[in-house]
Structure formats: structure tokens, C-alpha cells
Write a protein that binds this DNA or RNA. Structure first.
Lengths: 222, 222, 222, 222
DNA sequence: AATGAATGAGCTTTCATTCAT
DNA sequence: GATGAATGAAAGCTCATTCAT
């Protein structure tokens, strides 16, 4: 009959480990910790401190350290996916679509936590192959599929002349954006290149690509 | 016929931690363990078991786990360095040099332990920046410098028309070989592509590159 | 009759590493182990076993082996300090004060863990100078300061005639009690001397001291 | 028939582990190492380096680390013993003998390695009781026996009036020299007191002692 | 006799996970 | 549901001792 005398946030509102706010809070703390220290060097105590929840609570929401890390990776992936898909959908011409794609790619590489996340994943790839594959399946490696579809459509419309769309997509990504990808991945960029510099690189790559695959050049094939 | 005097310096005897055979044996074991488990998950006991030497012996040859890992990385790097340099030195024409460069690059990506090594390095990049930099300074990221010089020389000879050699080098690498680099890095290659397939990709990239930078096209520059 | 609310701060609950009962339990175990084996030969596993707590728990309460040892030493010191100060404060005449001081000193030497603690400290003196100094600052070596003040006061009151109070204090301690100090320190006492024997030694020393520094002898000074 | 081609110092001259020069060389190295680091912190490798002999050789001359340490202690003890015995033998009058005894004691305490040696021994006393006892049996603690005999002889000659010679000997040592002993033992002396200061302390103690036990005072007993 | 590379038990310390409250 | 003290296996590393040369 006596009322409970301890804080009972959301009692009865969610099943065990299902409160999405708390879950997000844990993931936010975990993100900060993992990004800073890497998978192995980050301890669950660090997560506890950074997330502001107790050890036990974490284990209510996530089965293990690896499970927590997997959930974190899953969330990063979703955000990236959604953003890239929207960009391609909004673009009208092939030239505009390709350019915006390249710029969006560069943005994610340079301004988000994508690269640190990928570094950590690569470090544990052999131990957690499934987890990694799930991430990479829609990461910079494979949003190539989206681009590939886009290029195929442009080919249908006569904007491009491409036979091997997979190769062309890879070439475009590599030429216009992968330079920054590798530079960032290997920590080879002391300061973020300014937008003008990025535009210049994208432009040169795009011209080379259009020079080869554009409608005017008829003597070749992909 | 006189019995051998001992101690006999130089016959099977080395200064502490200087026996190259044993050193190699330890590195081989460490390589297997690190490649399989990553840096943190690999324990010195694992190395002990895999290398077939005792714990103490490892610490005679290497100061610490990090030191052992550093030596391992150094060894991988040396082999790669030597091979790439020789290839460029042996080539006559720009076309031949570029093609051989791309093929050699592909070989290292696909057939050696370069990529697994890099994965692990990326996983510990924040904790061991110096070690990583030393490796990456001559890794696929940066043998670009060699290629850049090569392209500049070709430009002087009139074989290529290139203004921004750094950009051109990056573009060539990205186009001809980086596709495999990323595929391997992200463990995205179920089976090694056959030599024919590799030749086809290199050929397409090289044609796109020559189409843009080759001597005949005079209306532009990179 | 209402069921107890939890978490109930302050009822059987303490902040991390702050439960004084458990802390004492660990210190008790550590004391037994250190006294028996010395600092280096005592392992944390030994402490674990003797204290009846797990390894991890010890490291919640103490940062390191050295920290644990330091806390142990601090505890011994406190008990000694408090007792000696009270004894001098309670005494009325010089003769009574000096006699009680000597007897209290003997008690600590013979009946407490003071001496074993000091032995261990001396063994690590070069490695832990600060820790040692903190202990010795109020150990038998230096409660001499208290005695010195006491003697100076007696001199003012005309009970003693002392010029060099520091020397006199040292002489008194050495004569009345230091014999047992050294005997105990070097493990030279097979059985504890009985109280009568102690009284006899203190008496002889006190008489020699008073014979020299007492008010009747006017022809000299220390 | 061929002559041995490796250095054969003393081959055939000594039984295994019996070359006193090499033995001394090892002990010298061990002394430096143990004095600097203490028993446990000193490693056999340190001894190896400091003594300039190989690990194996040490184990030819000494069974174990503890055995080596024991031999070292034994040697220190002998030197001290010999010196004190000679001093007492050379002295004529009680006053001179006692004074020289006190000064010799102070010298050993202040200028030799006696104190560091004792510190280390105290640190391992509970683990190596036999070893320690052997040392302390003739150390400052117990050269008291020599003094006791000397005092008894002086009593016979009428130079002193002493009933309890053991107590008197202890009192004399404590008064005249133990002050420095403790100061040194507890590392409480920043600079060595000069000879004048030592003479002053010895003088005061000796006067108090003679005041009490000297032939003129007839009203008491020890 | 002398060497010193090799051994492996044992050290201090960390940390993912559990469970009584 | 939430807590965080407690656990104990396992980590990196050291070092007394052995033994093939």
C-alpha cells in the first residue's frame, strides 16, 4: 500500500531494456568512449561513467560489450544510409547527381564519425566478421550499389554511355572521393581541406569521368 | 682435426636477442596471432604458443608487446618497399611503367599480408601514431610519391601532359588499383579475382587515364 | 512496518571503496601477510587469501600494493601517536611523567606490531622514502620532540636542570627504553621481559638521569 | 695435446667454486647491488652485470640468491667484529677504553655500509631468521658482550663500581652511540655530524655514566 | 670452468560480468 | 528497474634458475 520511495522512471511503460531514451543515452556514451579509445581499450566502466548509467543497466539493454558495440555501429550505419539515399533521390541530371554524391561522400568522410568508426571496425574485423559485414554492406564501400543504379538509369536516359556500370561506379567513387577517404583513414590530413579544394578535386574527377563516359565519346566502352 | 674451441663466437652463437633465426620464428608466430586476433585480443601467451618459444625468450628479443608488433610491421613494410621500387626502376615507357605499377600494387593487396597488417594498424592508430605513420609513409597511401615522380618524368619526356602530378598520381592509383584495396580492406572479396579480371580493370583505368592525360589530348590538363 | 525502501544510502551501503568494515578486513589480512613475509615477498594473492576478499575488491579500496602498505603503516602510526600524547598530558611531576613515558614506550615496543612494521619499512626505505618518513616522523625516533618539550617545561619549573634538552631527551629514551627497542628490532628477545624487569631497568635509567640532571646536582649541566 | 684455446684462469688450481678472487669479485658486485636496491628488488642479472661474471658462474660459487646474500652478510660482519675487538684490546684505562669504543661504534655507524646492510636484513628478518641472527649476534646489538666483559674487568680493577654489568653495558652503548645508530637507521641524518659534535655527545654520555658508576659515588648500585 | 639463452612459474593489475539489495 | 560492490580469469611482464655449448 505504501508508495514506492525510490525513483521509478517509466515503471510499467517499457519492457525490460526497452526504454528508447535510456538506450540512446547508453549508445551516446558508448560512442564517445569507443571513438576515443577503440574497442578493446574502452572499458565498460568508461561507458558507465560517460553514459551516466550503472553497470547493471547497460547489461539490461545489451547482452555484452560486443553486443553494445554492434548496436552502436548499426545506428551509425543507418544515419549514413538515409543521408546518401536522399541526396541521390533529389538530383535531376547525371552531372548534378554525381557531383552532389561526391560532395556528400566527402562530407561524411571529413566531418562525421564515420572514419573513426570504420577504423575500429577494421581493427576487429577478423574477430567480428558478421558485425563488420553488416556495417560495410552499406558503407562507403557499398553505397556504390546506389551509385551503380543511378549510373545505369543515366545510361538508359542517354546521359551516359556505360557498359560495365559496376566498374564505372567504382571508378567514379575512387576518383572523386576516395582520395579523401584514404587520407582520413590513415590520418594523413592535418587540416580539413576547404570546400574550394574539395570542389576542385571533384571537378577534375568528374571531367575525367564525363570525358570518358559522357555522350560525346562514342569510340570506347567501359 | 683439433677439437673446436668454445665458446666459439659466430658459430651458432649470438648476442642476447640477436639470433636472426629465433627472431624470425617469433615474428612468424606473432604474425599469425596478430593477423587472426588483432592487436589487443592477441595475448603474449598466444604468441608464445604459436612461435614455440617461452615467454621470457620473447622478452629477450622484444622489449614489449608493442615493440614486437612494431617489428612485425616494419618487416612487412620493407618487403613492400623493395618490390615497388624495383618495379618502377625496371620499366621503360610510361604506359608499361604505369601498368606494371598497377599490377604490382594489386599483387600486394591481394596476395600478401599487407592488408591485414593495415587493418590492425588502423585499429590502434590513436594509441600508436608514430608506429602507424612509419608504416603508412611507404604504404599504398604514399608510394604515391614514387608514382608522382614517375609521372613528372614522363611529362618532361612528353609522354604525358600533366600539370598537377599529385592529383594525377592519386587518380591513377585510385582508378587502377584502389578498388581492390578497399575490397580487401573491408573483406569484401570472397575469392581472389583472376589475373585476367585484374588486367581488365587495370586496362580500363589506364585507358581512361591516358585518354585524359595522354599526349594526343591537347585541349585540357588535370 | 512498511518495507524498507532501497537504495537506502547510509544503511549498509557505502560509496565505492568506502565501507570501513571491509577496508579494515583487508588491512587486517594485509597486516598478517606483510608482517610474516615482508613487503616484497608478500603477494597480493596472499593478501587476498588472508583477508578473505577477492583481488578486484582490494583494488577498489587501494590503488596499488604500495598504497595498501601505506595505509597499513598509517593505521599503526595513528594508534601509537594518540597513546603517547595522552600519557604525557596526564602526568603531574617530572619523575612521574618520565617514568610513565618510559613504560608506555616499552609497551609499544614489546606488545604491539610497531616493531615488525618498522622492520619492513626499513627494508624498503630507499624505495619509499616519503612513506617511511611519514611514519618515522611520529615513531619512537621522534616522539622525542614531545619528551624534549616536557623536559624543557620541567626545567622551567626547577624540577630539572638541563641546558641541552635535545641531548637529554635522547639520553633518557636511549637509557630507559631503547634497550628493548633494539632487542625487539633485532628479534633478540626470546620471551617478553616481565613488568618487574622492565620497571627495574626504567628505574635504574631514571635514577642515573635524575642523578645527573636532577635539582640537587648543581655543579654540572648536560 | 692441443693447448686449450679459451681463457682458463686458474684451471686446476681450485676446486669448483673455490677461487677466492672470483668469489670476492662476485661478493663485491653483489654488495653494490644489494646495498642500492635491497634484497628483493636486486636481481641476479644486476649482480651479473655489476660483478662482471656470468650467471652460471655465480651459481657455481653460491647455491642461490639467498646463499649469496648470506655470504655477503657474513663478510661484512667479520670486518666489523675484528675492528671492534682490536680497539678494546688496545685501550689501557676504563675511561679511554669506553671513549674509544664509543668513537669506533660511531665510525662504523656513520662511515661504513653497516647500516644499509642492517636495514636490508631487518626487511627480511622474518623470512630468513637464521641468517639475520648470525649477523646480529656480533653486530652493534651484541658487541655489547665485549663491552660487558670490559666493564666487568674494570670493576675488578676498581675503576668502576658496577653490579649489573649487562645493564651497564647497554646503558653505555645507548647513551653514547645509539643516538647516531637510530638517526642513521631511520635516515634521519642529512649530513654526517662532524667529529667535534660526536666527541661532545660521547663526552656527555661518558660523564653521566662515570658520575653514576665511577669510583667516587658509593651510595648506589647498578 | 664458464657462459648466457631459454625457461615458466609467478608477479601486480585490469575488467567483463554477475547478483544481492 | 536500477544499482555498483564483488568476482576471478587473464593480461603483460620479470627473474631465479638451468643446461647445452
Amino acid at each position: 500500500m505504501t508508495p514506492p520511495c525510490y525513483p521509478v522512471a517509466g515503471v510499467g511503460r517499457f519492457a525490460a531494456g526497452a526504454d528508447p531514451v535510456k538506450r540512446g543515452q547508453i549508445l551516446d556514451g558508448a560512442k564517445r568512449v569507443f571513438m576515443k579509445l577503440g574497442y578493446d581499450a574502452a572499458s565498460m566502466n568508461d561507458v558507465t561513467r560517460e553514459a551516466g548509467v550503472s553497470k547493471g543497466t547497460i547489461y539490461v539493454y545489451f547482452q555484452s560489450k560486443e553486443d553494445l558495440f554492434g548496436a552502436l555501429v548499426e545506428r551509425e550505419k543507418s544515419e549514413f544510409d538515409a543521408a546518401i539515399q536522399q541526396i541521390l533521390a533529389e538530383s535531376k541530371t547525371a552531372d548534378e547527381g554525381l557531383r552532389r554524391y561526391a560532395l556528400a561522400y566527402a562530407h561524411f568522410i571529413l566531418d562525421t564519425e564515420m572514419i573513426p568508426t570504420m577504423r575500429i571496425l577494421l581493427g576487429v574485423l577478423d574477430r567480428m566478421p558478421t558485425l563488420c559485414q553488416r556495417f560495410f554492406a552499406s558503407s562507403p564501400t557499398n553505397i556504390k550499389a546506389l551509385l551503380q543504379d543511378y549510373i545505369a538509369a543515366a545510361h538508359e536516359k542517354g546521359e551516359l554511355e556505360v557498359e560495365d556500370t559496376e566498374l564505372a561506379a567504382r571508378q567514379f567513387i575512387d576518383m572523386c572521393a576516395a582520395g579523401y577517404f584514404k587520407k582520413r583513414l590513415f590520418n594523413d590530413i592535418p587540416v580539413r581541406p576547404d570546400d574550394e579544394e574539395i570542389a576542385r578535386v571533384v571537378d577534375s574527377g568528374l571531367r575525367m569521368f564525363m570525358n570518358f563516359y559522357g555522350p560525346k565519346n562514342a569510340e570506347h566502352s567501359g
